[in-house]
Amino acid sequence: MVLSANQFREQIRSGLHTGPTSGFCEGFVQANLAVLPKEEAFDFLLFCQRNPKPCPIIDVTDVGSAVPKLSAPGADLRTDIPKYRIYEKGALVDEPTDLMNYWRDDLVGFLIGCSFTFEEALVRNGILMRHNEEGVNVPMYRTSIETVPAGRFSGPTVVSMRPVRNEDIVRAVQVTSRFPSVHGAPVHIGNPEEIGIEDLSRPDYGDPVTIREGETPVFWACGVTPQAVAMHTKPALMITHAPGHMFVTDLKTESLGVI
């Protein structure tokens, strides 16, 4: 049975779903999370505007509110993600399953487009997702591609990687280009060393996957970039999702597609 976004969030909230969200809730937009104090929020919003490939904005909450009014008005960002990360001065200090002990009245939540959203379109076009086949989290890597700074925020772009059969690469580019709000077309195809990745078997986030003969690694900008930025710029507090553990919105995937 295919769950609605609200039903899936209820499973997360009740602890029935605790793992990555790739492959779940087909047809609904998934999003990365970044939460910052109000005094940091404008600079981060500007950072996202200057870096739309890794940080395409889906929704922004009111100060102190955990409700994403535009994308999921019945949801709660404090409870509706399977696992979170708490960064203090750039250091990862906790990975809670809810934010009830961390939420404050001065916090602003940002929902950022996630490539899990366009995976279903790739699968419909016969391009299978290896991380789902192998039952692991998608591999993600910090790169030598620098983001455009804004205020105090700067750092490396993070990418997600999916092996694609050589004959399907053009189609993969065409399919994902339709979804600029969830990272769009790949940022790199082929040799990972050209973007500063030394070893595909050792991702910075997520898990390694098998690359078979006749396949090429394809890299998309990734919404985990704010976590690399947090480690680089060391704000007093940044809250994010744990890599692969996304927020599922009420928005339909096709609503973000462009012709």
Rank of each mutant, 00 (worst) to 15 (best):
N137V: 10
G27T: 07
F179A: 15
L77G: 04
E95C: 14
N101M: 04
E119I: 04
L200H: 08
T61P: 04
G64N: 09
V67D: 15
I81G: 10
L70W: 04
S144D: 12
S255A: 12
G109N: 15
D80L: 04
T143V: 08
S22F: 11
T61D: 01
T233G: 06
F118T: 06
A121Q: 14
F8Q: 01
V136F: 15
D204E: 01
G184N: 11
G257E: 12
V175C: 03
T253E: 05
Y87A: 02
G155N: 10
F116G: 04
R142T: 05
P56Y: 08
T79G: 02
T61K: 05
A150R: 05
N51R: 01
L45E: 11
S181P: 03
S181C: 02
S255T: 06
V229C: 09
R50C: 04
T97W: 10
L237W: 13
M1K: 15
H232E: 14
V224W: 00
T79R: 09
G244D: 04
S181H: 01
D105I: 08
P73C: 01
K252E: 07
V224I: 07
M231P: 00
D98G: 00
V108H: 00
G184W: 07
E10Q: 06
M231H: 02
P52Q: 11
P156I: 00
F8S: 01
I189L: 14
L3Q: 06
P180V: 13
E193Y: 11
T97A: 07
S14V: 12
E146T: 03
R171I: 15
V123A: 11
D106C: 01
N32Y: 02
V229H: 07
G64F: 07
N6D: 15
I127K: 13
V29Y: 02
T21Q: 03
R85V: 11
E254Q: 13
E120P: 13
A5M: 09
N32W: 11
G126E: 09
Q227G: 03
K38N: 14
E133C: 01
E167H: 08
P203A: 13
H131M: 01
V218S: 05
T18S: 02
R78A: 02
I259M: 11
V108F: 00
A72P: 06
Q30M: 07
P37E: 12
F8P: 02
D59S: 00
G244E: 05
M140Q: 11
T240Y: 01
P82M: 11
V187R: 00
V258M: 15
P52E: 09
I127N: 08
G155D: 15
V138A: 12
V158M: 04
E254R: 14
P56T: 05
F153H: 00
Q49A: 06
I12D: 02
P96M: 15
L256M: 08
F28K: 01
D98C: 03
I189W: 10
I145W: 12
K69M: 14
D207W: 00
K234H: 13
I211Q: 02
D80Y: 15
D168S: 05
I86H: 11
N6H: 03
A31R: 07
S22L: 07
T249A: 06
T18K: 12
R13A: 08
G64D: 05
T21W: 06
T18V: 10
Y141S: 11
C114S: 14
E10W: 13
G135V: 02
I197Q: 00
W220T: 08
I112K: 05
T61W: 05
M161Y: 09
A236V: 10
S181Q: 11
Q227V: 12
Y87D: 01
R104H: 12
D62F: 07
N137R: 10
E193V: 13
